[in-house]
C-alpha cells in the first residue's frame, strides 16, 4: 500500500519561484508550481515553445525554475527529454526528467516525438498542461480546443460560429501505447493532483500526466474563476479524472450527477455566442463520453476515500 500524500503533507519548497510572468489567475502556473513541489529539487525540466517557456522558463538569461532548465524546438519534447535522460544515465545520475508542454505542443506539433518516446518506454515524465488553444501567441485553435469555442482561427461569424470539431481524446491515444502510468489531473482536485504526481514520480518508464489548466485570458473569464472552471469542467464532463496503469483504467473521481454543460459555458466569453443547437450538439457528445467513462462495466473506484477531502466538500478535512 503506497503512502498517500495530500496538500497538507506534500513538500512545501517551491521550484517554480515567485516573480514569474504569468497572467493573474493562470491555471498553468498553478499546475506547474504544484507539480514541481512534488517532483522536488532533483529534477530537470524541459519546456518547448509555450506560455510556460515565456513566463517561467526561458526568457534568457532569466528563469523562474531554480532547477536545471532546457529549451529546444517546439515539436521535440518527447525526443529531447529522452536524450536528457540518456545523458544522465551515462553519467550514472538518477535525476527525474520532466518535459512540460502545452496542448499545442502535445496534441498537434509534438505528437510524433511523444508517441516515439512512449513506444520506446523512455524513463521520463511527459506533462501536458492543457489550456485548450495556443495561448502564448494570442489564442489560436489546437486539437484540444473544444467544440464551439471562439479562437482567432475559429472566429465567430454569421454562418460559422467557433470551432466545428470536437476535442481530441489525447489521453486515449497515449494510454493506448501501454505506458507505465498515465493520468488526467485537475487543479480543482488538489489531493488527487498531488497523489497522481507522486505516483508518476515513483514509477519507472514512460509516464504521462495530462493537466487541465484554465486560461483566464484566452477563455475570456475572470482570473478569480480559474478554480471554478476547473471544478465545473469535471462536473459537466468536459474533463474527467482517471488514471491508466498497466493497461487498466481507474476513475479516481466520479461526479455525483452530471451538470448541464451550460453551467460551464456561461462563465466564459469564448462560448458566449453559442446557440441552442450547438450547445445541444456539445451536450450530446458529452453524454456519450460520460457513459463511456463512468459505465458500470468500469472497475469499481479503488480510492473512494480520496473524495472525502476533495472538491467542495473538503471543509475541515
Amino acid at each position: 500500500m503506497e503512502q498517500r500524500v495530500n496538500i497538507r503533507s506534500m513538500p512545501q519548497e517551491d521550484h517554480l519561484l515567485s516573480g514569474h510572468g504569468a497572467c493573474a489567475g493562470c491555471g498553468v502556473a498553478i499546475a506547474v508550481k504544484n507539480l514541481m513541489r512534488v517532483l522536488g529539487r532533483n529534477t530537470t525540466v524541459y519546456v518547448p515553445a509555450s506560455c510556460l517557456l515565456i513566463f517561467g522558463g526561458g526568457m534568457y538569461p532569466h528563469s523562474a525554475f531554480d532547477v536545471p532548465f532546457l529549451y529546444s524546438a517546439f515539436e521535440n519534447t518527447g525526443a529531447v527529454i529522452s536524450g536528457i535522460k540518456a545523458g544522465y544515465r551515462r553519467q550514472g545520475k538518477d535525476v527525474t526528467v520532466v518535459g512540460i508542454a502545452g496542448d499545442g505542443g502535445t496534441f498537434d506539433i509534438g505528437l510524433q516525438a511523444l508517441s516515439g518516446a512512449a513506444e520506446r518506454n523512455e524513463d521520463v515524465i511527459y506533462v501536458c498542461v492543457d489550456n485548450e488553444a495556443y495561448m502564448n501567441t494570442g489564442t489560436q485553435r489546437s486539437g484540444s480546443t473544444p467544440f464551439g469555442a471562439w479562437t482567432t482561427t475559429t472566429p465567430v461569424g454569421s454562418r460559422v460560429k467557433g470551432k466545428r470539431s470536437f476535442k481530441k481524446d489525447l489521453m486515449a491515444v497515449v494510454a493506448s501505447q501501454d505506458i507505465a502510468y498515465a493520468a488526467t489531473l485537475s487543479i480543482a482536485h488538489m489531493n488527487d493532483f498531488v497523489q497522481k504526481v507522486e505516483r508518476a514520480k515513483a514509477r519507472k518508464g514512460f509516464r504521462f500526466l495530462h493537466i487541465m489548466a484554465p486560461c483566464p485570458s484566452g477563455w475570456k473569464a475572470d482570473p478569480s474563476l480559474t478554480y471554478d472552471l476547473a471544478r465545473l469542467a469535471v462536473e459537466t464532463g468536459m474533463w474527467s479524472l482517471y488514471e491508466v496503469e498497466e493497461g487498466e483504467a481507474h476513475v479516481t473521481y466520479r461526479p455525483k450527477e452530471m451538470l448541464p454543460v451550460g453551467e460551464y459555458l456561461k462563465l466564459q466569453g469564448r462560448f458566449k455566442h453559442m446557440d441552442r443547437e450547438d450547445v445541444e450538439a456539445l451536450q450530446a457528445w458529452l453524454c456519450r463520453k460520460w457513459r463511456m467513462r463512468y459505465a458500470p462495466s468500469q472497475p469499481p473506484l479503488d480510492r473512494t476515500d480520496d473524495l472525502a477531502c476533495d472538491g467542495d466538500g473538503c471543509e475541515g478535512a
Binding site: H20, A24, P68
Partner: peptide
C-alpha cells in the same frame, strides 16, 4: 547559464524572483 549576478541583476535559474509582480494587480 549558471546562477550568476552582476551589476545588481541576477541571471540563470531562479532569477525571475527579482520581478516584483505585485505591482500588476
Amino acid at each position: 547559464l549558471g546562477r550568476w549576478e552582476r551589476g545588481g541583476m541576477a541571471v540563470g535559474p531562479g532569477s525571475m524572483r527579482q520581478n516584483m509582480t505585485g505591482t500588476w494587480g
